[in-house]
């Protein structure tokens, strides 16, 4: 091994496991997830609903809804382990070192407080700063996220803003205490298509300027393609594929990733009809034996049913698949599969 990297990753997960104990047994919502995000890097996390993307993000900031809990693994923030911290210490990290952007800006903001009050309270929770100085910084923060007339609008209430403007306010709130990591959970899903690109561009620019690492959770491959440096594909609470964004998009190795690409309008160049991955993601209560994707996989073979669930190591750290797609022929495979469902 060479000398350890002098700059620790902004976020590093090691074999993270999240369990949800229920009356009918324990569900494993996130299983053996490991990845690192370097300072300034944007990691896209994609997958269908229920794949464990949001659950992973919530586990990082320590806001899992009980009874869900971290059952194993480690979370390191800038080289410091944080999953073992107490409630108070974790609270001081939230907002200060990890900023969070949620899906729906309309419900994320407290309807009864002005946006200025919400910015000031956030800054004063983390920074040793007077109310007056915090207000001045709040105006600057609103200007930075592109709220026109920030000085006059700081005393406005959330309902007086449009959806896109509200999400800008949310981003200002997430970044106002200068965190080193932002977890953006579907930040554009609830917005008009016309403002989605603006919000993504804004988030990308602000984080690049500050060297903030971003974990961008989304199911929109188009957003990932435009924004992320690397991409993690999750399936049924597990990592399916992890790699540089162009590599994964152009030369997917996991059949699930290839299916996702083929079912995305922007990524399936010119296919007459969008591909549909057959079936649905299994419930956590009845995961199949072997590879969790094999019942839906066009390339599944006998050993996929038998061999215990593969990890990324099965494909040299890239895809959790026993029979990864040939990088040169991946596109053809998908095209063929797409033809198959079109008939």
């Amino acid at each position: 091994m060479s000398a350890p990297d002098p700059v620790p990753p902004a976020l590093e997960l090691r074999n993270l496991r999240v369990d949800i104990p229920t009356r009918r047994g324990t569900l494993r919502a996130v299983d053996d997830v490991s990845f690192a995000i370097a300072p300034g890097e944007i990691l896209g996390v994609v997958g269908e609903s229920g794949a464990g993307k949001s659950m992973t993000g919530n586990a990082v900031i320590g806001l899992l809804d009980p009874p869900a809990r971290i059952a194993g693994g480690e979370v390191h923030l800038n080289g410091r382990r944080i999953d073992t911290l107490g409630r108070g210490a974790l609270r001081r990290i939230r907002g200060a070192e990890i900023g969070m952007v949620f899906q729906d800006p309309t419900s994320s903001l407290d309807p009864l407080l002005t946006i200025g009050d919400q910015l000031v309270e956030t800054m004063r929770a983390h920074l040793d700063i007077s109310g007056k100085a915090a207000r001045a910084r709040a105006v600057a923060a609103l200007e930075e996220v592109g709220i026109p007339g920030a000085r006059d609008r700081i005393d406005s209430y959330p309902f007086q803003f449009s959806g896109g403007m509200r999400q800008r306010v949310v981003i200002a709130l997430a970044l106002c205490a200068e965190p080193s990591l932002v977890i953006a959970d579907e930040p554009t899903t609830a917005l008009d298509v016309s403002v989605q690109a603006q919000i993504i561009a804004l988030l990308k620019r602000l984080c690049a300027e500050r060297g903030t690492a971003v974990m961008l959770v989304t199911h929109d491959m188009g957003v990932i393609a435009e924004t992320a440096d690397r991409v993690l594909v999750m399936y049924a609470g597990r990592m399916a594929e992890l790699g540089p964004v162009r590599e994964v998009i152009d030369r997917a190795r996991h059949p699930y990733t290839a299916g996702l690409m083929a079912s995305t309008p922007a990524a399936s160049r010119g296919a007459r009809r969008l591909y549909q991955i057959p079936g649905a993601m299994p419930r956590l209560t009845d995961l199949p034996e072997g590879c969790p994707f094999h019942p839906r996989c066009p390339k599944a073979q006998e050993d996929c049913r038998r061999v215990p669930r593969p990890t990324l190591a099965a494909d040299g750290g890239r895809a959790a698949c026993l029979h990864p797609l040939d990088p040169e022929r991946g596109a053809e495979d998908v095209a063929r599969a797409a033809e198959g469902t079109a008939r």
Binding site: I61, L63, R94, G95, M100, T122, A125, H126
Partner: peptide, 8 residues
Amino acid sequence: RFARARGL
């Protein structure tokens, strides 16, 4: 939830 995520 967002208020908690802001570390209040």
